[in-house]
Amino acid sequence: MTDGTALAPKARPSRRPAIVRAVTVAPHGLWCLLFILAPLAFVVYYTFTDPSGAFTMANLKEVFSSAYLKILKRSVLLALESTAICLLLAYPLALAVARLKPRNQSLAILLFMLPMWINLLIRTYSLKLLLETNGPLNSFLGLFGIEPIGFLNSEFAIILGMVYNYLPYMILPIYSVIAKIDPRLKEAAQDLGCNGFQTTVRVVLPLSVSGIISGITMVFVPSISTFFISKSLSDGRIKLIGDVIEQRISLHNVAAYEIGSALSFILMILIIVSMLITNRFGDKDRGVVV
């Protein structure tokens, strides 16, 4: 064919004009800029400047002084402890739920989700009431002749608060991964000589790593940055890094902003590092399910 039309390029599928794309993306971009990038920029700016605006490392140095370091250490420790407790509680629970009949599974998951319909503040206040020296828990223990115990104002109370508030975030991702494991794989393991426990350890556990990773991330990150739980369950006596940041920022002066920012900066680094570590584990198993 010598006809010119035969050689003409085929009509491409029509693309949206650049202007349309730009307009549709703009709100999202603006949102990111205003509420994610700008605050981060401020944090970095205040971390590395003095009140006159000159570059300084003094803020970071101060944050690494003993008083703040102690709080930082405590925050990391408490977050790790509550994450570990959540994991130990959630994994067997998720396993048990995945073994229920489908209808009962959704009911069980609903029960775990139910507390999340109530505001975190109210949940924490309720927990505080329960734990009061003359609260219901101690009255109940009193029935057995046990003297009232001062549960509050202790690291125990804070860990309890974190576990209570964040447990569903651990259960859900683990459950959803376990529920999706092909039942035939478990049968194959049994067929090849594994009893129930060995099947769980050798097949279910390795196949649910991605759920565990997601759960750890979703519990550790809010745990390490929480301020409200520690503040209300210890009447402000046991401070975590979140409490200090909140306190500093609410002072509304530049010097306090700088310390607050420096602490936030450290916290950010901590969270990024922890996510990098967990993602490294997750990558082996096709990434993290969040």
Partner: peptide, 19 residues
């Protein structure tokens, strides 16, 4: 139980351990 029987199975669609 299955794990004590001298019987092994080739499953439909294989059921190989993906990990």
């Amino acid at each position: 139980p299955a794990y004590k029987r001298q019987v092994n199975t080739v499953f439909q669609r294989y059921a190989l351990f993906p990990h």
